[in-house]
Design a protein around this nucleic acid. Structure first.
Length: 862
DNA sequence: GGAACTACGT
């Protein structure tokens, strides 16, 4: 048989020829043209041309007929023709023709590695990775082209590990990579965070003398940066001979991922100094990073600067702004960005739509959501599973379960989020039965429930008040064995019990999860901590605080904020202050919590001082700050300053005052005895603003009652009662709780003689007599708890018990009471605090009292 | 065979 050699039609650029892996010094870059050999018994040239013509015209069935007839006469098609035909299959995604060609190629006796490589690539690009793999493994001879085709196929299919494995098999086979292949392998390493493989590949690149190729270098740099190994990345970056925009972007995005936006900014400025102007991608990286770090104002400023540099924002820029603002609680602005983007003529992608929908979801704005929904349909995103998932979520949360169901049915390829969102939707609508049905159906589908699915079901039962079912699922989850119970699973139990008011059970679960070696996270702490924010749970608070310290959670601002708040409400403002002082970074809530803590403890001086410091430190006060500040002025008796603060809410901070501010203002006037002003204020300001806009709001009616009671306007009180709903003035028995020697004691108001021993009775009578001096009277008090003659209030019993129960006088007494304290008990508490030198912390239904040295933090007004 | 750096959802 005579053999001809012909050059390949298009010669490839500078590949490295396969050679055996041996002494590294033998590696060299050689250029060669691939050789194709085939038998002489070939097709006449015109048939070859004709076939190519048919394929280019999309006449595949005709081409197959020609091929069949060629096979019948035993003639052969040249390899170049097969390769052209296979390329046509790739271009037109025609797998049928591809398979037919495969059959024909199999009939050829001499197998050509280039044709086979093309076959691998054809199958891979048509989406048939398994077939590609089959051809690849059946090949007797594989060159760099073949390996690259196979690796490329796995890369497209996001099979990162397989890519890395293939690479090392290739090396074992003696085939050396070229500088086209390195970036692909490194990309896979980055995506499966395989830092060890990266180091090895890095050394191979050095041995192959490929480190002068900027593409290879950028890829190495990118993996180190992406895997969070910034030290390596930086060292590599600093040593690079040549750096382009991509190199700078890789290192900048590395710092961004670590949240080190300052260093990222520094590098960003340094890059222009080196003469490389940041491109769109680099701007986007920096903008996205600031959005993620919730510095969306900085992101907005950066976007402005970018535009002034003549760079037009693309879909990534806009998407990043939309999602950044949505997550930073600025949903209206988020949707504004979406509108602006459309006006700028930039086409949104699925993620843009998803972000915009999620903004509507948290706004609970069904109208805006529907607008985007119809836009999504028009733009053809309706098959997009991400868009569908966010739509299900939006409809569910806006109470439109049926619409959610409709979207659910329309999603062709449901993922685990699709199922979870729909199950969550049913749960939210309290259709636990339907949710469970879907949960069962999901287990029969090809998508398996994950930990979230179980959590959603558990939370669903909890919200439906069915703690037993929830607990049952929680146990079954463990037995199921396919998913592991994680912190979130335990959290759903904790918060579920808390929602059902079962504080004790919630705390029990909190302890149990740690016994099971499951670490609480900030979500756990933020749900369980506030439930201990009272005067008699200090031990629990300290236990949680211990857990926070052990898990290193105190560095999370919300956790520290919650600790500040809880310690203050537990009567320990000193602990709050220590946490405040040791926080390395603070937010507005940190300041608000600390200020409100001091107000709660009657320390208006410190609260007002902190307010000044807050403003000086550059924090903008919000509505919560002002409610506290007016209270502080009220406590300090500074009516004019308080009034001024109230005005500055609108004038300086453009905030519309809410109920909390009006209530604080009434308090401010009332406490200072300026009842006429209180009345005028409530009638002129609050009356028209609030009562009209929210006629059903019980709090507003209480506020009005407060004002009328202050002015003794009984006829107005009865008018108001008629206007609003009549408050059911149900009589509750006075009760209080006190913890002595680690034991909780409950006292109930009732008949003096029945409840009290003779000794305690005499003791109390003695105290009551001594407390009657004018020093301890309460001029401004509004009496609350009543009782028949001869009754004794529960807190008096608690005082008697606490002071007589142990040989020494306790330093402090902490009492919780369900009703509002009466003036008599208040007076006695003041007396005790002075006579016994003991601090009394008492929280009643309305306020917090800290009695010390004969005075109370409430300023005798509660 | 033909590349590296960016974006989203419970």
């Amino acid at each position: 048989m005579e053999n001809f050699t012909i050059p390949c039609k298009s010669s490839p650029p500078t590949p490295i020829l396969p050679s055996k892996l041996g002494n590294p010094s033998e590696f060299s870059l050689r250029h060669a043209k691939p050789i194709i050999s085939f038998s002489r018994k070939t097709l006449p040239k015109f048939t070859d041309t004709h076939l190519n013509y048919l394929c280019k015209n999309g006449q595949f069935s005709e081409a197959i007929t020609v091929l069949d007839s060629i096979a019948q006469i035993g003639s052969k098609v040249p390899p170049t023709t097969y390769m052209n035909l296979l390329q046509s299959c790739i271009d037109t995604n025609s797998i049928q023709l591809g398979r037919k060609l495969h059959e024909h190629i199999d009939l050829v006796e001499e197998i050509n590695p280039f044709v086979e490589t093309k076959l691998v690539s054809m199958y891979a690009k048509c989406g048939f990775l398994d077939d590609a793999r089959k051809v690849f493994h059946a090949m007797r001879e594989r060159n760099l082209y073949t390996w690259s085709a196979m690796i490329g196929a796995c890369l497209r299919d996001q099979r990162w590990k397989e890519v890395v494995e293939l690479f090392f098999s290739m090396m074992k086979d003696g085939v050396l990579p070229d500088y086209f292949l390195f970036p692909k392998i490194l990309q896979a390493c980055g995506n499966c965070s395989n830092i060890e493989a990266t180091k090895l590949i890095h050394s191979i690149a050095v041995r192959c003398n490929l480190t002068s190729c900027i593409h290879v270098n950028n890829s190495i740099l990118a993996v180190y940066a992406k895997c969070g190994n910034l030290e390596w990345a930086r060292r590599f970056f600093d040593n690079m001979d040549e750096r382009d925009g991509v190199s700078w972007n890789a290192i900048i995005s590395g710092y961004c991922h670590k949240g080190e936006s300052e260093e990222a900014r520094r590098l960003f400025d340094a890059m222009s100094k080196e003469g490389i102007e940041p491109g769109l991608v680099t701007w986007n990286t920096l903008i996205a990073s600031h959005n993620q770090l919730r510095h969306c104002d900085v992101a907005m400023e950066l976007m402005r600067r970018m535009e002034s540099c003549g760079i037009t924002p693309d879909v990534y820029t806009w998407t990043s702004m939309i999602s950044g603002f949505a997550q930073n609680n600025r949903k209206h602005q988020s949707l504004d960005f979406f509108k602006k983007m459309l006006l700028a003529g930039v086409q949104p992608n699925g993620i843009t739509i998803t972000s915009a929908i999620s903004a509507c979801t948290s706004l609970k704005s069904l109208n805006k959501g529907l607008e985007i929904y119809s836009l999504a349909i028009k733009m053809g995103f309706i098959d997009d599973v991400l868009v569908g998932n966010s739509l299900i979520d939006m409809f569910s949360k806006c109470g439109e379960v049926e619409a959610a169901q409709k979207v659910f049915r329309m999603i062709p390829e449901k993922d685990v989020y699709t199922w979870n969102s729909m199950i969550g939707g049913y749960c939210q609508a309290k259709y636990c039965g339907k949710a469970y049905e879907l949960f069962t159906k999901m287990q029969e589908s090809d998508v398996h429930p994950n930990a979230v699915t179980w959590n959603v079901m558990i939370t669903g039962y909890m919200q439906n008040g069915d703690a037993d079912q929830a607990m049952d699922l929680f146990q079954r989850m463990e037995k199921d064995g396919k998913v592991k119970r994680n912190t979130a699973s335990w959290n759903s139990l904790v918060s579920g019990y808390l929602q059902l008011g079962e504080k004790r059970k919630a705390f029990g679960v909190f302890r149990q999860m740690q016994a099971y070696c499951v670490n609480p996270n900030s979500v756990t702490i933020l749900s369980v901590l506030p439930s201990c924010a009272n005067l008699v749970a200090m031990k629990k608070v300290k236990e949680i605080h211990g857990s926070v310290v052990r898990r290193n959670l105190e560095s999370e601002i919300p956790v520290a904020n919650s600790l500040i708040d809880t310690y203050a409400k537990s009567g320990n403002i000193a602990y709050s202050r220590i946490i405040f002082d040791t926080m390395s970074s603070k937010d507005t809530i940190t300041w608000n919590s600390t200020i409100s803590g001091y107000v709660l403890h009657g320390r208006s001086d410190v609260a007002l001082d902190l307010f000044d410091q807050m403003k000086k430190s550059g924090f903008k006060p919000n509505r919560g700050t002002f409610a506290n500040i007016i209270h502080a002025y009220s406590l300090a008796g500074k009516v004019d300053e308080g009034t001024q603060a109230f005005h500055s809410i609108t004038e300086d901070y453009q905030i519309i005052p809410g109920l909390e501010h009006y209530s604080a203002m009434v308090d401010l006037y009332g406490r200072s005895g300026r009842l006429q002003e209180a009345m005028e204020f409530i009638e002129v300001r609050a009356g028209e603003h609030l009562l009209v806009s929210e006629p059903g709001n019980v709090l507003i009616q209480q506020l009005m009652l407060q004002a009328y009671a202050l002015c003794g306007k009984s006829e107005d009180i009865s008018k108001l009662r008629k206007f609003g709903r009549d408050f059911p003035k149900k009589k509750f028995l006075g009760q209080c709780w006190i913890e002595v020697k680690n034991k909780m004691h409950t006292f109930i108001s009732g008949n003096r003689l029945k409840l009290c021993s003779v000794f305690l009775n005499l003791w109390l009578q003695n105290i009551e007599e001594k407390a009657k001096t004018p020093d301890f009277c309460n001029e401004l008090c509004v009496e609350e708890e009543e009782g028949e003659i001869g009754w004794i209030h529960s807190e008096k019993l608690a005082f008697a018990f606490a002071l007589n129960g142990s040989p020494s006088v306790p330093q402090s007494i902490r009492i919780m009471k369900n009703l509002r304290m009466c003036g008599d008990c208040h007076r006695i508490a003041k007396y005790i605090s002075m006579a016994f030198g003991c601090d009394i912390y008492l929280s009643d239904a309305k306020s917090f009292h800290h009695f010390s040295n004969g005075r109370c933090s409430c300023g005798d007004y509660w």
